[in-house]
Amino acid sequence: NKFNKEMRNAYWEIALLPNLNNQQKRAFIRSLYDDPSQSANLLAEAKKLNDAQA
């Protein structure tokens, strides 16, 4: 399933972002599970926040 693969990839990328705190990571990951079709958008948002907090 395409969404499962995208979701799994996004999950690990988000989990490993160095500048997000655990609460932020959990919120993004919860959103991934709520709507796997938004994986790419959620990952992009997480990366933006990660960069902003660098």
Rank of each mutant, 00 (worst) to 15 (best):
N1Y: 01
N1M: 03
K2C: 15
K2N: 14
K2R: 08
N4Y: 12
K5Q: 07
K5V: 03
K5P: 10
K5I: 03
E6Y: 04
E6V: 06
E6Q: 10
R8V: 06
R8Y: 13
R8P: 01
Y11D: 01
W12G: 05
W12P: 00
E13R: 15
E13D: 05
E13Q: 07
E13S: 14
A15S: 14
A15R: 15
A15G: 09
L16H: 14
L17P: 00
L17G: 00
P18F: 06
P18Y: 09
N19V: 03
N19A: 07
N19I: 02
L20V: 05
N21Y: 13
N22K: 13
Q23D: 08
Q23A: 10
Q23C: 05
Q23F: 12
Q23E: 13
Q24L: 06
K25N: 00
K25C: 03
K25H: 02
K25R: 12
R26Y: 14
R26F: 12
R26M: 11
A27W: 15
A27P: 02
A27C: 05
A27N: 09
F28L: 06
I29A: 07
I29T: 07
I29W: 14
R30F: 14
R30V: 05
R30K: 05
R30S: 05
R30W: 09
S31I: 08
S31H: 11
S31C: 03
L32T: 02
D34K: 12
D34I: 13
D35Q: 11
D35K: 13
S37N: 04
S37L: 06
S37C: 03
S37Y: 12
S37E: 03
S37G: 08
Q38E: 08
S39Q: 07
S39H: 13
A40L: 11
A40Q: 06
A40V: 11
A40R: 11
N41C: 03
N41R: 11
N41G: 07
L42I: 09
L42C: 02
L42H: 05
L42V: 13
L43M: 07
L43W: 03
L43D: 00
L43I: 12
L43E: 02
A44I: 10
E45I: 15
E45M: 13
E45R: 15
E45T: 10
E45F: 14
A46K: 00
A46D: 00
A46Y: 03
A46W: 01
K47A: 06
K47R: 14
K47N: 08
K47S: 05
K48S: 08
K48A: 10
N50Q: 03
N50T: 01
N50Y: 01
D51P: 01
D51I: 12
A52K: 09
A52H: 12
A52R: 10
A52M: 13
Q53E: 07
Q53M: 12
Q53D: 06
Q53S: 11
A54L: 09
A54C: 04
A54S: 10
